[in-house]
Design a protein around this nucleic acid. Structure first.
Lengths: 207, 207
DNA sequence: TAGATTGTTAATCGATTAACAATC
DNA sequence: TAGATTGTTAATCGATTAACAATC
C-alpha cells in the first residue's frame, strides 16, 4: 500500500475495470495478466506492476478472479460508494451527461440542478427541479454535494468559482472551456477540443 | 523536424495553443518560455523541448511571438485546414457537440448527420438534414467526409464499424462507451467515465 | 555591446519492461 | 509434484529537467 501512486497508474485503473466488467459479462471468471494484457494491448508486466501498488489481488499459478479484481478496483477508485452531484448548466451537454450518469454510473446521484436561463428554471429532469441561481447557491452552501459538473460557457465560469470554493464540494468535473484551479478542490478540466485537435494531428500524420 | 513525435508532446500542443490564444486576446504579443511556463504551470525547458521537435519558432534574447507561435501550432496540428465531419447519433450529446463545434471549432464543418430514430430523421440541425441509415451510408461511402463523430450507445457501434472501415473517413472521435479499433483509421476513444472515476479517486485521496 | 533567451546537449528522473524467485 | 503465474526486484527505456553555448 504505497501512499502515493502516480497519475499514469490511476488513469489506467478505470480501463482495467471496464475490461474486467466485459470479461465478467462474457462469463469469464479468471484471467491471467498475460491474457488481460493481450486483450487490452498492454504488457502483462504493467498490469501486475500497476495492481501491486495497491496490494496483491492475484494467486500465483492461477491468475486473478475477474469479479473480485473488478470489485477491488472499484473500491480503490472509490466508485463503490455513492456521490451526490450537482449540475451547473442544464443545456444539451448537461442533459447528455445526466442521461449518461443515470444509465452508466448510478452511484453518482443527481441531487441538484441549476441554470441561469429562466425558461429552464422550475423544469424537472430525472425527478430533480432546475433551480435558479439563488436557490441553488443555498443548496450548495448548505452542504451534502460531493461533485459539481460544470456544463456552462467559459464566460460564466468566474461567477461560480467563489461559490464552489466556499462550499464543501470535493471535486469539479469541468466541461467549460476553462482551466479551473480551486484551492482545496480536485478539478478535472475536460477540454474536449484538445482531443479533437490531437486526433487531427494524427489524421494528418499517418504512420 | 523529427519524423516521430511522442504522444505526450502532441497532447500538450493544443494546451499551448489555448494559452497563446488567451495571451493574444489580452493583447500580449511576445512571451518567453519562462513566462509561458509560469502561466501554464510547466517548466520552460519542457516548452522549448516540445517546440523544438518541430523547428525553432523563437528568437534568442527575445522569446516567441504569441500570434506566430499560436499559428504555427495550429499548422502543426492541422487545425488551420477545414474538415468535413459527420455525426452518427443526433441525441443530446451529439447536438451538444455540434453546438460546440459551431461555436469553438468552425474549421470542422458539419456535413452529414444520421440517427436511427425515425422521429429525428428529416429534421435539420445547423442547416444539415438528419439522414436515415440508408441515405447516410451512401453519403459516407461516396466520400468527402474526413471525421466521424460517434455519439451512439455502445450496443449500436458494431453496426457502423464496417461502414466506417469501408469509407475513406480518416478519423473517428468516439464518445460511445466502446474501445474501437479500425484498421487504417485513427480513433480517439473518449470514455468520459474514466475521467470521472479518476476524479473520484482523487476526491478520496486528498494529498 | 550587454542582457536575455533560445536551441540543444547532457544529466536526471520516473515509468515501463524484463527477469525470476516465491508460491499456489 | 510439476506447471503456471504472481509479486517484486533489477534493467531498460523514454521523458523531463537542467545546463550552457549560440545568438538575437
Amino acid at each position: 500500500m504505497k501512499t502515493y501512486v502516480s497519475d499514469a497508474v490511476i488513469k489506467r485503473l478505470p480501463r482495467y475495470r471496464r475490461f474486467l466488467k466485459s470479461l465478467k459479462e462474457q462469463g469469464t471468471d479468471k484471467v491471467s495478466s498475460k491474457q488481460l494484457g493481450e486483450i487490452m494491448d498492454v504488457t502483462a508486466s504493467q498490469i501486475r506492476q500497476d495492481l501491486n501498488h495497491f496490494g496483491g489481488f492475484g494467486q500465483q499459478g492461477y491468475g486473478y478472479g475477474v469479479e473480485e479484481l473488478g470489485d477491488r478496483l472499484g473500491e480503490i477508485l472509490g466508485v463503490d460508494k455513492t456521490y451526490n452531484v450537482a449540475f451547473i448548466g442544464c443545456g444539451r451537454l448537461g442533459q447528455a451527461l445526466m442521461n449518461f450518469l443515470i444509465a452508466n454510473e448510478p452511484n453518482y446521484k443527481i441531487t441538484a440542478l441549476c441554470d441561469i436561463r429562466p425558461e429552464l428554471q422550475g423544469r424537472e429532469i430525472a425527478g430533480v427541479k432546475i433551480d435558479n441561481v439563488e436557490d441553488f447557491n443555498k443548496k450548495l452552501i448548505g452542504g451534502g454535494i460531493d461533485i459539481v459538473i460544470l456544463t456552462i460557457p467559459a464566460d460564466q465560469v468566474e461567477a461560480v468559482r467563489d461559490l464552489i470554493e466556499k462550499s464543501d464540494v470535493k471535486g469539479v468535473w469541468n466541461f467549460s472551456m476553462t482551466e479551473m484551479v480551486i484551492k482545496g478542490k480536485k478539478v478535472m478540466n475536460m477540454h474536449l477540443s484538445d482531443s479533437l485537435q490531437a486526433l487531427t494531428y494524427y489524421i494528418n500524420h499517418p504512420d
